[in-house]
Design a protein around this nucleic acid. Structure first.
Lengths: 344, 344
DNA sequence: ATTAGCACTCTATATTATAGAGTGCTAATA
DNA sequence: TATTAGCACTCTATAATATAGAGTGCTAAT
């Protein structure tokens, strides 16, 4: 897919991108001539730049302006040129130790991941909560709210708790409900949602009619829990937007507005992170990629995280300008994903 | 506190504010002369305006510009001039019927209130979740997560559910926990958080040492629940910011940024709504009020809502430009608060 | 193959000019 | 005495113009 670029071309592209990342201003040939390791005059650089432009890696905003990297330019840079900085052991230790995991509350853990990544990167982190399909059910409890409403508390391993209010077909007493809860808990032990429907229907024989509606309620609930975490707030965690707004590309009203609008509807981001979840390791969406065409000028670095059992559980990402500091940001996301694997 | 203004002055102030609310541009004497019901020339209006300015109700951005209302101007307008529009019965019915309260999930209800108020008003609604201090406890349930962690589910009337993971002093079996849960539930029935500590300590005699740490855990939890809902997400609900950003006063980069910054930290808003909660009925914070000095140019209309039992439970608000359409917005907030009273 | 030199293009910024809205004051009017 | 027409004045917002400078592509020389 990607064309071969000789070393000289790569070096020039490299310089342009790294300079653009810092200044956000179009980069001129004179600057490159002075800065980059090739000892060439600005005129030669200009020739190379003209070539790079023809190949689509850089772009002139207008005649006789400097050059700005294109999406393909970034892509090539990331795939072939970029050397990411490793995070020092000391820094790793610092990050890990600032994770306060007392309580094992998944919500808090994810928020902490968001805040930490925000602090490290100065971009906008996003985290998708772990999938529950493969989570093992630990406990189900029915609690009476009133004559016609019951609360179903569903607890999965990893400290994931789901509350759901369902209607009751008749007026159960709490004692009854406790009995049914206990009965169910005997059966469900250690099964995941997918297996559960069968397990339950098999496990219950005689009592079936007596708490049929309860069963229906929770089975319906499983479907909901499995397919989508109902409340977006508990599904997608978004870090501070301020970091993005401080970037020069969003220093005008129209752009900032389009940005806010894009993030107000969380569906785009959710879709992206769900995509990332299915893939192993780091993935990067740049500028006008098909999966991420909504906002021009933004890139997203994503990584999936998963428990030690091995299947995909969730994903974490970092949204920044396309012009973002990939060398720093990629290992940051990567390390945070690893950390989540360890903790969850 | 507020000076007396004769009818003529009031009428001019009225015209200025209502015009400014619509156009967001300084209002000139000529326009007022043509528009308002007083049959006076622009020269006479100018005299009146000069007086109004001296009294502090209006203000000239610069010499020979039109006049803009000040905070005092708005205050006077709201207290003495404004005639709010009543919401038609038909509209009330529409709003009420679009409330989908199946499930009685408090979270969903509050979000719905936010979305509805946003739609009606085109400003930014905020809702503070009901206080739990006076909520009656319905049920407590201990659920085993693993050797050293327990989940405490606390259910209050009104469908409020609180999950909290606490450490265990030893390895309880689920059967044990269920027993303790049942025992506690016998005692707590119908008491509110404030009374609960005593009730529990009195109700448990012999078993006290056997599940002392559990008790400690939940009592500590009560304190948390009572004093503050730990997770801001479950406490404060904020509507779409877009409506605000569409207002002309925020059509420049600096202002929009200060606005975002102000809202990113939810504490200011929470403080305001907690203040509003303690007061009966509608309250309005304008521009540079001491309680709301953070953002110039914004006003907040607040109302407390409460269950039929009568004590304050929560509050709802609407943030808009000071230049907001109070005649429409005040009854909207008021009605929504009433609606919340009915539903909760 | 590389580069110095140069004319050229385009933007960004500052500068100036112009139009118009709104004022305060004064003198005339009812 | 209260009101108003008239007018000079102030200030902003917009447009028009000028200037500087950054960066280019091309050509001819090295």
């Amino acid at each position: 897919m990607e064309e071969f670029l000789n070393e000289r071309f790569q070096e020039v592209l490299h310089c342009i991108i790294e300079e653009y990342i810092v200044t956000a201003n179009p980069v001129g040939s004179k600057f490159i001539a002075g800065k980059c390791s090739l000892n060439l005059s600005s005129a030669s650089i200009r020739n190379i730049m003209a070539s790079l432009e023809e190949k689509g890696y850089i772009h002139q905003p207008y005649f006789s302006a400097g050059r700005v990297p294109t999406s393909s330019g970034y892509k090539f840079y990331i795939n072939s040129i970029l050397k990411t900085k490793k995070i020092s052991k000391q820094q790793k230790e610092e990050i890990r130790s600032s994770f306060n995991i007392s309580g094992r509350d998944i919500k808090k853990i994810l928020w902490q991941a968001v805040h930490l990544l925000s602090e490290i990167s100065h971009y906008m982190p996003i985290v998708l909560a772990p999938e529950r399909t493969y989570a093992n059910l630990l406990h189900i409890e029915f609690i009476k709210l009133d004559k016609s409403n019951l609360l179903v508390v569903t607890v999965f391993d990893g400290g994931i708790v789901d509350n759901k209010i369902i209607g009751a077909d008749r007026d159960y007493t709490q004692a009854e409900l406790s009995k049914y809860s206990a009965k169910l808990n005997e059966i469900i032990n250690g099964h995941n949602i997918d297996e559960l429907k069968d397990v339950i229907l098999k496990g219950i024989d005689k009592d079936r009619e007596s708490f049929f509606s309860l069963l229906n309620g929770i089975i319906f609930n499983f479907d909901l829990v499995k397919n989508k975490i109902e409340n977006e707030d508990d599904y997608l965690y978004i870090g501070s937007r301020m970091n993005l707004f401080d970037e020069p590309e969003f220093s005008n009203y129209e752009k900032i507005k389009s940005l806010i609008k894009a993030f107000e509807d969380k569906k785009t981001i959710i879709k992206l992170l769900e995509l990332a979840k299915q893939k192993e390791g780091i993935h990067i969406f740049i500028g006008s990629d098909t999966e991420w065409s909504d906002i021009n000028g933004l890139s997203v670095i994503t990584a999936s995280y998963h428990s030690k059992k091995g299947f995909a559980e969730g994903s974490i990402g970092l949204i920044g300008p396309s012009r973002m500091n990939y060398a720093m940001a990629i290992p940051a996301v990567n390390y945070m994903a690893k950390l989540l694997c360890d903790i969850i």
